[in-house]
């Protein structure tokens, strides 16, 4: 089954060269695709490498980080071979990104209209007047009332939810093919979170975008994603369609993430936790990177790193439990 894809990431490695002998493998050999109109969720704890994967796609990795190798193709076009200047033509136009912290993501000294307008002038060659009009339209599209006044205001005059709407307006300004949303609602009030996510979904339909949704919230995943990639220690540990993953999780880490969700029906006394913390990216344990925290750890896990196994055409997992492709759990 060969489908048309928007984004193809192959064997991407993003390393941070901290000191001469210390290398943080923030993203270590990930491969995935995103199809037109699809919502793919990238899930994992803090430090699992999901944000770094997204920033790698945008080529916004800061020193001492570097994309060591791999391939990132947008509609078949290799992005890693582009110059800085060529990549700047792609950013904001074909791939747009919104960030976790709307409070700090907007430039405090320029007006909203200026910040939305400059992307339109840059990528669509609009003049000031046209850009201003289009900025008003965009603000109305993302559901901001008083758009004609808001364009003259500065970020500090807006609430967090409003600022995130402004970020979304900037992201959709050039109707990108792919929108990357890095924890877009984590910093917002719970009541605003659903509004923002619903807005993202509605815009995704309206502008025929694909969405790469980065989150640690499996509740969000179950509601909005089509397909899920679970990341741990810079690697993909499981990938499946959302329903399959939620009902039939294979990797002990995915299990642990699901167990930590509150469940309306079961009234558990305590929510499940995964013991320990994510190891730093420069000091992964030998063998499987999850072995130090895994409840189902075996001897082989400390010795040999498991590889990604295809269980069904739409479900793959990185765990020795499924070494023979069978289901042992």
């Amino acid at each position: 089954m060969k489908q048309k894809t928007i984004l193809d990431v192959k064997q991407l490695q993003t390393y941070f060269y901290l000191e001469a002998d210390r290398v943080a493998k923030a993203v270590d050999d990930i491969t995935f695709s995103i199809h037109p109109g699809e919502t793919v969720a990238l899930v994992g704890e803090s430090g699992s490498g999901k944000s770094m994967a997204a920033l790698s796609i945008m080529q916004l990795i800061r020193k001492p980080g570097r994309i060591k190798q791999g391939s990132i193709r947008l509609e078949g076009k290799e992005l890693l071979q582009l110059t800085n200047r060529q990549m700047a033509q792609i950013r904001g136009k074909d791939i747009a990104m919104i960030f976790q912290e709307p409070m700090t993501a907007l430039n405090p000294v320029y007006t909203i209209g200026n910040q939305i307008g400059e992307i339109l002038r840059k990528h669509q060659g609009l003049n000031r007047q046209q850009a201003k009009q289009e900025a008003i339209n965009l603000l109305q599209t993302v559901g901001i009332p008083r758009a004609t006044e808001i364009i003259h205001e500065h970020p500090h005059q807006l609430s967090g939810g409003m600022r995130q709407r402004v970020m979304i307006a900037m992201a959709i300004a050039c109707k990108p093919k792919l929108l990357i949303a890095d924890e877009p609602t984590t910093a917002l009030d719970v009541t605003i979170q659903a509004q923002i996510l619903d807005l993202l979904m509605q815009l995704k339909e309206q502008f025929h975008m694909s969405l790469l949704l980065i989150t640690h919230d499996l509740g969000v995943v179950s509601e909005y994603a089509d397909r899920v990639i679970v990341m741990y220690g810079g690697q993909m540990v499981e990938e499946a369609a959302v329903k399959e993953l939620l009902q039939n999780p294979k990797h002990p880490y995915t299990d642990g993430l699901l167990a930590s969700l509150p469940n309306m029906e079961e009234h558990a006394e305590r929510l499940g936790t995964i013991r320990g913390t994510v190891p730093p990216a420069y000091a992964y344990p030998a063998g499987c990177r999850f072995s130090t925290r895994c409840p189902a750890v075996m001897d082989i896990c400390h010795v040999k790193a498991p590889s990604l196994k295809q269980l069904t055409p739409e479900h793959q997992v990185r765990c020795h439990l499924y070494a023979n492709g069978g289901d042992l759990s």
Binding site: L60, T104, L106, N107, K122
Partner: peptide
């Protein structure tokens, strides 16, 4: 290093814009 500079880069703004428009006015305060 700030978030809004990253935003500007994510918007595809050029280096000149980032340095002289986005960063300078904030750094001069």
């Amino acid at each position: 290093k700030s978030d809004y500079i990253r935003t500007a880069r994510a918007k595809g703004m050029g280096e000149r814009n980032i340095l002289y428009k986005q960063a300078l006015r904030n750094a001069i305060i």
